[in-house]
Design a protein around this nucleic acid. Structure first.
Lengths: 78, 78
DNA sequence: ATAGTATCTTCCCGAAAGGGAATATTATGA
DNA sequence: TCATAATATTCCCTTTCGGGAAGATACTAT
């Protein structure tokens, strides 16, 4: 996992795998199962499993749903 | 509470449409056509057009390719 | 305004990949 | 070990992607 932080609480997402690790870590911090998070965010269990395992070809809107449900913000900059 | 809309040098991505706007603006700043950016990043012209227009169901890895090609970083935080 | 040009969007096709629901596997605890 | 919870994977149908080309807009100069 990429633990480099450029800003407080900000993690650079360079690959789908990094994204998956961020999601899994936050979900566990929040003491949620995949089933609970899936229901909370309106995505399927399979999707969530694949997201956390770094599948590259998942759809953007569902990623945004999950991040939003976890209270995470996504930011783009130089 | 945090009333900041963005973190330093960053734009919060809340929807696919916002992402599309960021990509289009950066591409134009760099004086690239869609054809040029598509070739540069290895995605199709149609994909790039759909990305810039906010299509929700595009694939994550291709988004990352385009952002990387534009020299943009993606970051996740609270 | 009009012509001409550059750029962007949309259509078709086949191949590849996505998603939900169901099933299988793995991890955890008594 | 065995039962249960949690996670990963399979089945089947739908959707996306790239490529090429046509259609639609935008831009520029006269």
């Amino acid at each position: 996992m990429n633990t480099e932080k450029t800003l407080p609480n900000g993690i650079i997402i360079d690959t789908p795998r990094t994204l998956g690790e961020v999601v899994r870590n936050k979900r566990k911090e929040d003491n949620l199962t995949q089933v609970e998070l899936a229901e909370l965010t309106g995505v399927g269990l399979r999707f969530l499993s694949e997201l956390e395992n770094g599948k590259p070809t998942i759809q953007l809107n569902k990623v945004l749903l999950v991040l939003s449900g976890l209270g995470l913000k996504i930011e783009i900059g130089q």
